[in-house]
Amino acid sequence: MGAVLRSEWYKLRKSKMLPIIVAGPLIAVIIGAMFNYDSMEGGFNQWSLAVLSMNLTYALLFLPLITGVLASSICRYEHQAGGWKQLLALPVRRGNVFISKYVLLLLLVFLIQLLYLGAIYIVGIINGFTDPFPLEIIWKSILGGWLATFPLVALQLWMSIIFKSFAAPFAVNVIFTLPTILAVNSERFGPFYPWAQPFSMMYIGGNAEDVFFVPWDQVLTVVGGSFILFFLGGYIYFQRKPI
């Protein structure tokens, strides 16, 4: 397992992912910088305001969509020139290959989350925020958003193993992500929609008593449930995929 993971990491490092990884934080800075903070009134912490406005695009659209690009990227070199058959002809368990790729994807998403944290900070500096930095809240948001992508990453890895092109898994991703815009406005559907969870769990305006701004049972059932579904789906599909 360790060897497979190291080999995956090596292949990844050699495949110029940097632009894709910094894309999100970059766009967060752009959007965050364009937002007019002076127009907002009343007692809000400036940082919180910035995060709220930046999350609107970052957590709602960017984070779910970029998981697909990352997953396709991590499968790209296997689809090209028969990498799968070479990889799986080695004495490795298929399951370990799948898990290695999945773990690596999670680490990448975490890296993006950390960069997003940096982006928030930069936006604050650009705008000259003077309020204290609400460290704990923002950390919870970063971690929560990361957790919420677990099922999405699993589904996208699954799709990326099925399809050779980037476009097809991306289309699947888009089909599920666009409705989020409506779902988060709905108290009835929002909590149950897996693609809305990154936004909900990063929504620092949510219930502050809950660790991740949403109730624990929602985290467990919706995020946990869809994670199990998508992860097992992908895992079993990959076990059986004829190469």
Binding site: A23, I27, I31, L61, V69, S72, R76, A167
Partner: peptide
Amino acid sequence: KNQGIPITTGIFGVIFAYSAHII
């Protein structure tokens, strides 16, 4: 060569389109 690039550009695009009122 790498279709991750146009797809990522597309993601940028949709985020801008979604933020149309502030860009």
